[in-house]
Design a binder for these strands. Sequence first.
DNA 1: AGCACGTGCTTGGTATACTTAGCACATCAC
DNA 2: GTGATGTGCTAAGTATACCAAGCACGTGCT
Lengths: 124, 124
Amino acid sequence: MSDEEEKSSGSDAWRGLGEFIRGQRELANLSMRQLAEIAKISNPYLSQVERGLYKPSADVLKNIANALHLSAETMYSQAGLLDNSGSRDESHHGVEHAIKVDPKLSVDQKESLIRIYRSFTAGS
Amino acid sequence: MSDEEEKSSGSDAWRGLGEFIRGQRELANLSMRQLAEIAKISNPYLSQVERGLYKPSADVLKNIANALHLSAETMYSQAGLLDNSGSRDESHHGVEHAIKVDPKLSVDQKESLIRIYRSFTAGS
DNA sequence: AGCACGTGCTTGGTATACTTAGCACATCAC
DNA sequence: GTGATGTGCTAAGTATACCAAGCACGTGCT
C-alpha cells in the first residue's frame, strides 16, 4: 500500500489551535498547572496540546474554553471543527466594533485605539 | 465537594446523541455502511456510537454531521458539547474580549492593546 | 554555596477512540 | 433447498488521547 494517506483531518489546523490556547492562557496570566487544574486535565498533556502534538477531544476542548472564559464555539472554530458551512456572518469584527460601541471611551480614545489596532493588523 | 454532578464525562448525554444520530440516519434512509462510508468511519464503530457505547471525538462528529447534512453546531449541541456554559455572554465583555479573541493579533499586541484600553478607562 | 518553589517538558504507562475481519440473521434469485 | 447480497453486531487488535511521576532549568531567599 503505497497509497498516500490524506485523511479529512489536517494536522496543521491543530497547531494553530495550540498556539491559540497558549496565547489565551498567557493572556490570562495562568501557568500550565493552573489552567490544567481548572480544565481538569494534566499539565503535561496541556503542554503537548499547546505545541500541537495532540489534538484534544471535544470535551477537553470545552473544558479548556470554560477555564479560559471563552465560549466553546470560539474554541471549536479555532480548532477548525466548526466549519461554519452556513457562512453565518456572526461575530466578525469584534475589536473595532467593540471599541466604537464602548461607552467608557471618548471619541479621541476610540480613534487612538482603532489606529493602533489597524497598525497591528496592517500586515494581513 | 458536596455536589457530585455529572462532570465533563457524563455518559448520559452520549446515549441521547447516539439515538439522535440513528434517527437522522434512518430519516435519510441510509444504511450504517453507507453513512459510515460517507462519514469516513467504519460501520462497526458507527454501530457502537449509535448505541452509546462510545463517545465520538469532535472531528468524527463533524464528519457525521456533514454526511447527514446537518450543521456541526447542531451535532455538538446534541452531544452536549456546546452548551454555552462557558461564560454567559460573549458579547458582553466588549473590547477586552474582542481583542483577546482576535486571531489577527499576536499575544504581545493583545497585551499592549488591553493595557492601553485599561489606561483609557481607568480614569473615568 | 546551598535549598525551596516556580516554570515548562519528557518518559512510560493506561484508558479509550477507532479499524479490520468475521458472525448471525434476514430477503432475494436460482 | 443453496448461494449471493443486504442488514446490524461482535471480537480482537492498533492508534492515540490522556495521566502520574519525575527531569531540567530558572529565581529568590538565608
